[in-house]
Amino acid sequence: MDAFTRLDAKIAPLPLANIDTDQIIPKQFLKTVEREGLAKGLFYDLRFDGQGTPRPDFVLNRPEFKGAGVLVAGDNFGCGSSREHAPWALMDFGIRCVVSTSFADIFYNNCFQNGLLPVVLTADQVQALMDEAKGGNHVVSIDLEAQTVVTPSGQTFAFEIDPQRKEKMLKGLDAIGETLQAAPDIDLYEMKQALANPWLEKA
């Protein structure tokens, strides 16, 4: 996993609530056996019309938002399907951080598996960031160590994040490797379970 420490990047506003993972990456792009190359499907139906022509008014198609690395979106971002293709597509497109008032649980969790930072701010702060981002070509600074977002005009917003998740994100740690350090505990658990609930072994 890529580590995330600090990011200075162009910010793009997507002022819609309940952006579901079907919108982030529609089903036709899930038929891949790879993690890479999903940028082409990101927000496909928002970015392209029925003929596959880019919609010029969609934020990520506008030249002033080209290369955006931070997305600021409405409430409950990432609801719906558990598809990890959603963070993969965002990352592949160059988005490293999403800011919203709230995220759906599974998506939020998937972000941390991939070095995509989800930042929760208050409704007023998200609105302020959207307003500042509107014109395009504005850079925002995200500092994970300090847990701050510095808006284009220089306002500083602090955000909360789970300390363990923060630590792993800063270091880009592999969760499996870490869990495997507890292999003796897992062995012990399995032995105890085999004695207490033997029918589970024969399932």
Partner: peptide, 30 residues
Amino acid sequence: DSHTSTHGAFGALAQGIGTSEVEHVLATQT
């Protein structure tokens, strides 16, 4: 799959996970 919640009907704690966690469960059963 997010609709894993279905199995909760039996009093089982059932939840949807992403692919990284699928790999984690395959490797560690946790």
